[in-house]
Every structure is written in C-alpha cells, then in structure tokens.
C-alpha cells in the first residue's frame, strides 16, 4: 500500500514536471492595457481587454505567450511582455500614499493637476522666481498635455512587428 502511494506520488510529480502546466501561478497585467486573445498570435480574435494590475492565473506557457484565466473566468492568450510576476507598484505605493495623508492637513489645494493642460500652480510660481521665459513654459505645457492614443501606439508596434505583433 505504502509503495503504491509512493509510486503514484512520483508519477504525479513526473507528469507535472514534464508538462508545460504551471497550475496555481499568478501573474499581473503589467501593461497599461492589454488584449487577451483566443490564440497565441496577434491575428487571433480578442476575447477580453485587460487593465493594468488585473490578476491572472497561469494555465500554460508557450514561448512568448502565456495562456491565462482571468478573475471573471475568461481563458485566453496574452503576450508575455504584458504580464509580470509582481503587482505593478502604480503611481503611488502604500508608503507614498501614507505620506500624502500625513502631509494633507496643511497642503490643501497646493498641488493642482499637473496631468491636465496648463502648468501646475507651484511650477508656474517657480518659473516666475527663476525667470523661465514664456517660450520655455509653453514648451513644457505642450509636453505635459501631449497625448498619443493607445490605438496609435498599437499601430506603431504592429508596423514594426514589435510586442505581441512580432513574428
């Protein structure tokens, strides 16, 4: 009986080690946005659009592609460059957010939205103090406001056969 159990355990171990399966492994979407496809090429239909930080369970790995299952139960293939083993840190990590909480008591309205069009109030004040010209302020303002749609980046990657569009 004991020998039989030991034999079965070794058999299970060997089968697991020999297959590509990576049951139980968790990955995170590390790209800003990513597509889950029905097959492992960029030509296969998209079965789900994923957002950064989403948790995925690994089903199988195959070269540059990983077959995964989403939290909603959708299974598909994702380009390996779009996933990571650690959860993306994000704009703020927990400690930074804590620091912001402590500082907030006396910081109301201090930092405006640098992500929006226009220079931040503090930056504008700094520019006044150090004598930055209007031309240079406009340049940084334009740089801040400069947006490129994700579709354009995908088209660019596709044309260069980069990322998931590689052959």
């Amino acid at each position: 009986m004991n020998h039989r159990h030991a034999f079965l355990a070794i058999l299970v171990f060997m089968v697991t080690a020999m297959t590509d399966a990576a049951f139980g492994e968790t990955l995170y979407v590390s790209a800003k946005s990513a597509q889950l496809r029905s097959g492992k090429t960029s030509l296969d239909p998209v079965v789900a659009s994923l957002k950064i930080g989403e948790t995925l369970e690994v089903v199988k790995r195959d070269d540059r592609w990983v077959q995964v299952k989403t939290a909603k139960g959708v299974t598909g293939w994702i380009y390996s460059g779009n996933v990571s083993e650690s959860k993306p840190a994000g704009g703020d990590n927990e400690l930074a957010a804590l620091g912001k909480g402590f500082r907030r008591t006396e910081a109301s309205g201090v930092t405006a939205s640098a992500g929006a069009r226009g220079l931040d109030k503090a930056s504008e004040s700094y520019a006044n103090r150090v004598g930055i010209t209007q031309q240079h302020r406009d340049a940084v303002d334009r740089m801040t406001a400069n947006k490129i749609p994700d579709e354009d980046i995908q088209t660019f990657l596709k044309a260069g056969r980069l990322g998931e569009y590689a052959e």
Partner: peptide, 19 residues
C-alpha cells in the same frame, strides 16, 4: 516629510525640473 513622495507631488516636482 520622511515618507516617500506621492505621485501628485512628483508631478509638480517633475514639471518644475522640466522647466
């Protein structure tokens, strides 16, 4: 003051340095 700088502050700092 000792805890890491948050993203909102980072944006302000980044923009001022960019100038």
């Amino acid at each position: 003051g000792l805890l890491p700088i948050g993203y909102e502050e980072e944006q302000t700092i980044g923009q001022a340095i960019a100038l």
